[in-house]
Design a protein around this nucleic acid. Structure first.
Length: 303
DNA sequence: CCGGACTCCTGTGCGC
DNA sequence: TGCGCACAGGAGTCCG
């Protein structure tokens, strides 16, 4: 759920609270949400066993937090030089929640990892909560590994994607444009909400073949992606049901949505009724007037 | 290699 | 009110 604007809002809300904090103790209540990436391992082999002590080290026990970085939907918690780096993927329902010493969480179910943070005035906590457990925490050895092994697999960050980069990547695939936008290797940070929003803003039908876009269309799309995401970040992201920032607060961009979740409602640009369908196995909404079907689409869409 | 389908989970909202 | 089903913001894996 959380897409780039929600993860960026989370990063901004947590960073001032976490910088300088020392992780005194880590409690991995459900260690299976921690998934080190295994390179070159046989696909069906079991994960390597990790001792509890080693696990806590990978989860920054004993480290002092330096800063929080983001690329696309991934959030990296970076401690002082020489420490491991923790990459958090929120999946559909993941949350990172910060609690001051006298705070209790709004809900205490589905909490999978707890970090006890040292500080004056008692202990603060950071919680990883995720009902559906599609979220993951991927520990990497260093900041260099974060860049080389995790973020190098991702496309450019969507908040600053350049038309030339987008054009090159879209030209390399015959998939429909919506499927391409959802592929984090093409551009990092766009999910189902902002794919529909950006395509509506750029007046592109979601089933347009990626490699058949005109130069001007890619230019409009890159612009639409940046503008949509920038505005959503300014609104603190989109809260549909679960998303909250590090302080438990939701975002307000939902009321600004033009396409997503508005099938059957009038287009805010032309007044025609928005059409719902399924594209790339995801619920999709577009305007039949502003986003007309192009001459060649990849596949007919259902709905 | 590529693209599409399936799968992993729990919670919610709807129709009957 | 209760039950069962469809569906949900993601993405890894498998198969044709």
């Amino acid at each position: 759920m959380p897409e780039l604007p929600e993860v960026e809002t989370l990063r901004r809300s947590l960073e001032p609270l976490l910088i300088g904090q020392v992780v005194e103790r880590v409690e991995a209540i459900r260690p299976d949400v921690v998934r080190p990436r295994r390179r070159g391992a046989p696909r069906l082999s079991r994960p390597e066993p990790v001792t509890p002590r080693r696990l806590r080290t990978m989860l920054l026990e004993g480290c002092r937090i330096d800063r929080l970085d983001r690329h696309g939907k991934q959030l990296a918690i970076i401690a002082q030089h020489g420490s491991p780096v923790m990459v958090v993927h929120l999946g559909m329902t993941g949350q990172l929640l910060f609690l001051t010493p006298n705070q209790t969480p709004a809900r205490d179910d589905h909490i999978h990892v707890r970090w006890r943070l040292g500080g004056a005035g008692g202990d603060a906590w950071l919680l990883f909560r995720d009902p559906r457990r599609f979220g993951r925490i991927t520990p990497v050895q260093s900041e260099a590994d974060l860049i080389a092994e995790e973020w190098s697999r991702l496309g450019p960050d969507a908040l600053a994607v350049r038309a030339a980069d987008l054009a090159a990547r879209l030209a390399a695939t015959s998939r429909c444009i919506k499927a391409a936008l959802l592929d984090q290797g093409v551009v990092a940070g766009v999910g189902n909400i902002y794919a529909d929003e950006a395509l509506h803003r750029a007046r592109l039908h979601p089933c347009t073949r990626s490699d058949r876009l005109e130069r001007s269309e890619v230019l409009a799309l890159a612009e639409a992606i940046r503008t949509t995401l920038r505005r959503s970040v300014r609104a603190g992201g989109t809260t549909l049901r679960d998303y909250v920032d590090g302080n438990g607060r939701g975002g307000t961009y939902r009321s600004d949505l033009r396409a997503y979740d508005r099938a059957g409602l009038p287009c805010r640009r032309c007044g025609r009724i928005l059409v719902g369908s399924t594209v790339a196995q995801r619920t999709t909404t577009h305007c039949p007037h502003c986003q007309p079907t192009p001459p060649s689409t990849t596949h007919p869409h259902r709905g």
